[in-house]
Design a binder for these strands. Sequence first.
DNA 1: CAAAATAATTAACAAAAGATAATAAAAGAA
DNA 2: TTCTTTTATTATCTTTTGTTAATTATTTTG
Lengths: 196, 196
Amino acid sequence: MINLDKLKQIYKFSKELSIEDASVLIKSAKNISFKKKEILIDEGSLKTTVFFIKKGIVRCYCINEKGEEITFGLITENQIISNIDTILYDRPSNFYFEALEETKTFSIDYSIVENIIESNPKLQKNRKFFAQKMMKLQHERVKSFVLLNPEERYLDFIKKNPTLVNRVPGKYIANVLGITPVSLSRIRARVVNQKK
Amino acid sequence: MINLDKLKQIYKFSKELSIEDASVLIKSAKNISFKKKEILIDEGSLKTTVFFIKKGIVRCYCINEKGEEITFGLITENQIISNIDTILYDRPSNFYFEALEETKTFSIDYSIVENIIESNPKLQKNRKFFAQKMMKLQHERVKSFVLLNPEERYLDFIKKNPTLVNRVPGKYIANVLGITPVSLSRIRARVVNQKK
DNA sequence: CAAAATAATTAACAAAAGATAATAAAAGAA
DNA sequence: TTCTTTTATTATCTTTTGTTAATTATTTTG
């Protein structure tokens, strides 16, 4: 049975797919939903599923030597979650991926995507596109740490992620910015006062 | 004329090259050296040359709104320099790349590498390998900002870059770590005292 | 809705970082 | 080598951050 929603998702990935490949993707890809607090990928996991978030927020976190959860990233609508430790380096995940809201994904195993890309030279540019996007995000983030102080980093974050700010506990955002929740709270107070 | 040094460099990139492609690379690739303080890539440049550093150090820096030079990264032996703004995003370089020492490179235009990769499916994994390596470096760096404080970041840096520390002015390292040179100096003093 | 749990803010203090300037040390050039 | 320039360290002071704990606000859940 052809599923229109799936077709739309696949179309987002590439308009270069043959009918055959598209049908492989449609058969293999699933709509998977997660309840709040559910884990998409566990630490230590070797899962190679790629999740495209249609709706919701997922936080990526690890546990430091002190046993504290440190949120590394927040992933939301139209972004991709993958166990990069496994997909890129064949190692178990260093991170947990947890849904912060009811989260709907369109997901598929990476090996299937990989096979289809391998057999379709035209799709190489698609892969390149994703790799570039990921690189750019990482690069921008490093830049924000090198060039900005915590307050500027916070302002930059809310500018780039306006939808996240009011949906996610601030303590997670603090982690992402490399500061403590207490410090974030003070920065917020400062920013509000400066505006007045 | 076949150049043994060039052959070695090319061999480092891939053992999957055909004789034809290897000879294209050998013809196109050049050994280029830079004197201290010479610029490899200028801000605003659209140059797509890829430099493999055989010997030397290059710093990548930009100029912030206050007109100060901020060193973003330090690249050294067996690492690659490229104008990622142009190669990945077709935009002029945001950075300057300056030799900090007499620097010897093996260099080639990216378009040539690209053509050869395009026509050799086997080399795709080579490209993937480089992309992965870059991603990993960026990712590790973000991790160091999120999980470590400036002192830990410095210790992590000297552990991972033991050869750089005594060859490069500390003020550049401070920038890379996202702190001021004065602060780095204090951290160093602290670390020495703690050891005693 | 009320109780319980979670998160955010605020306070108080210690530690570290930024800024600026002075001094010392090191490196480069004549 | 000596002079000059650059870099590193130290001092002083201000600002910010981390830490811990108490308080307040918000969310969750029975």
